[in-house]
Amino acid sequence: MEHADDLRTEALESLLVEKGLVASEAVDAILRHYEQEVGPLNGARVVARAWSDAAYRRRLLADGTAAIAELGYGGPQGEHIVVVENAPRLHNVVVCTLCSCYPWPVLGLPPAWYKDPAYRSRIVREPRQVLAEMGLALPGDVEIRVWDSSAEIRYLVLPERPAGTEGWSEERLAGLVSRDAMIGVARAAAPRG
């Protein structure tokens, strides 16, 4: 059965490529986008709520685990989540230097690069350089704080709300919040004009 599925899909792609309707590289790019850049929804909803509701934001920063549980998320690796908030002059980024601790209930499973020894060691030593390499160039006057997850504590970055999103619904806002923004290696996406 598996084999028949492979064949049929391969036949479809090869015909569409032959007809010039798609390029395989474009398909690769779309897949990469969905696998690596689209953020987990639970965390995005938490962030969108915090952007929309000042009282919720205060509760979230005071006790991340409890505020996240208000939205129904919790479980293994989420027993003690600390939320760190970005500001115009302050950027937070999360790592687990020892292994790959990660707030599963809000972010799902970590991406491959998060577990990579290079990220785990370098983000502590030269965060500005590593972030720039990952596509986030921060001005020199922005302080970078690196949060190292421990056996008990998991961190979640609360990104800055993008300008031009006044009056947006939480659902719409959540669409701007990528996994990478909640780890701190990207910003929340700007609204499309």
Partner: peptide
């Protein structure tokens, strides 16, 4: 948890196509 789940590579291919 919000991330798309592909059980086999062909599913991802089909989605991307």
């Amino acid at each position: 948890n919000g991330e798309l789940v592909f059980e086999a590579p062909w599913e991802g291919r089909l989605f991307g196509l």
